[in-house]
Design a protein around this nucleic acid. Sequence first.
RNA 1: GCGCUCAUAGCUCAACGGAUAGAGCACUUGACUACGGAUCAAGAGGUUGCAGGUUCGAAUCCUGCUGAGCGCACCA
Length: 592
Amino acid sequence: MEVRRMQAGDIALLLGERVTTAVAVTTGVRITPAEALVRPSTRPGADYQCNLAMSLAKPLGRPPREVAAAIVAALDADDLVETAEVAGPGFVNFVLRSDWLAARVAAMTGDERLGVAATAAPRRFALDYSSPNVAKEMHVGHLRSSIIGDTLLRLLRFAGHEVVPHNHLGDWGTPFGMLIEHLVDEGWTNGHSARGAEHSIGDLNAFYQQARKKFDADPAFADRSRLRVVALQGGDEPTLALWRQLVAESTRHFQQVYALLGVSLTPEDTYGESFYNPYLAATIDELEQRGSTETSDGAVCVFPPGFTNRDGDRLPLILRKRDGGYGYHVTDLATVRYWTGERGMTDLLYVVGTPQAQHFQMVFGASRAAGYLDEDHTTVHIGFGTILGEDGRTIRTREGGSVKLVDLLTEAVQHAAKVVADRSELDSATQAEIARAVGIGAVKYADLSGNREKDYVFTWDRMLATDGNTSVYLQYANARIHSILRKAGQAADAGGGAPIVLDHPAERALALRLAQFPAAIEAAVEGYAPHKLCQYLFETASAFTGFYENCPILATSTTEPVRRSRLVLARLCSQVLTRGLDLLGIEAPERM
RNA sequence: GCGCUCAUAGCUCAACGGAUAGAGCACUUGACUACGGAUCAAGAGGUUGCAGGUUCGAAUCCUGCUGAGCGCACCA
């Protein structure tokens, strides 16, 4: 079951419908508008192109150019197409009518959704992202999941779907035995250490390493830690109280990062590993009753079909370990069971790094076999590449640790503040606000503008860049538009319902881009691909600067009707940029 | 060993099986009394890792090879 395409907003599909009809009339072949292979054209002098005739030539036994000519001859599209011409081996190039394009753009100006239709087939998405670990600081590795997830949340909701975000906190399992034992050794009770010092997450980060070190060096401590895990999983109240301290401390830290990042996750969205603990026994019982479990080396496992290890043996998901504790796999199965069963979600999305690809395939396979998923459910592992250091290996600081997310974000804002201070004449409080919007935006855009599945090399230059294809370029274009609108004053308002004329090529090029906004949203949603929206926004901002250079608005030489028309275009462009940036979780200041 | 992913300009990245593979950075050269120069225009830069195959058409699909990364039972 795929997300249904939103036809209403996509010009290519509109043309596709006309081609579909023409093809049926002239050849009798029945296709869907999407199969008409109409695409935006990159060739000068063509807005869209149809690639259908070449593929139809063979089955029809006619030369491709002849098929193309027949399509053109039968085409009924004079209302929106200026010219439709056969070109090359059998392409059909379309030039849209400028008055049609103007009307199309004019319709967007009165529309809150800027021409984007809400989906006709809304789905219920459970969206898993961010997923930091309790008692550890967030590092750059959490950046991608957090902001890709946040963007998908915004995009899917804008497209008209129901989305429930959930933060799968690493808050349970073996490490907590040693952490809690170490807490006890340090004399912690009821949130205070014996020394009375305030504990912060920074302390806890070091705290984790101390615990780890002790665990590795001291067998007695390791034994106590293992017993503590059993106590935790068994619901021992004093143990739980200590555990809650760790979670509370960490949650406070996560919320600080989310606030800085503009990620909307709240503690209410937390569905950590511990949340599924009460469901684990029932999950295993169900699977055992179905007869889908096996005992292997003393561990209770399921073996999803099609996965083998180095010796050709089947790969298990371990539900219950030999020592009686739960394996983490059962939590993943219980998660699927919960969101499809108890919450009635139709689509489960997991924004987790690509190294986990096989793990998720196994979990999905087992979940399907267990009946937690039926034909209408989809499960998608939205993988993303690893952030690498400049040496091409997993990123590390000089000390060998990972780069803290707060450090990255703070650095980005400070860097932006310097740039803003050099250029802006605004007061310092406003400048600080803008520096935040610019700095955080730059980090997010750098991460979102590439194909998410590829690894990428982290460089400060890349994260802090403020020229070229960056969020700053988009923000700057938008700020310029606002500047014009401010200067135009009353005239800008009066331009609201003014007719749009597209005489200058730069006006027309901008209008065409603006009209493609719905298609860009659709492409980003369909592929869970924020970079497609980034690409579109950059092209739109480029079209605007071309327009800006060539089409003066406020100059005295510009006639009143033209000025009004250009004001409408400029304002709509600002709305598109602002909305697009918002969907990426990036602010669009009116001044910078 | 098995499996998965990736390889595109000097660098960072696009390209939905379609025409002459596009941007940005860096580099070179320019921009009229500037609606904001965080800008714009132009130039140069490519045998899409290699070799076959499928197709009217391949960076894209298939096979093999080379190189890199990742995953493969009680840690999450």
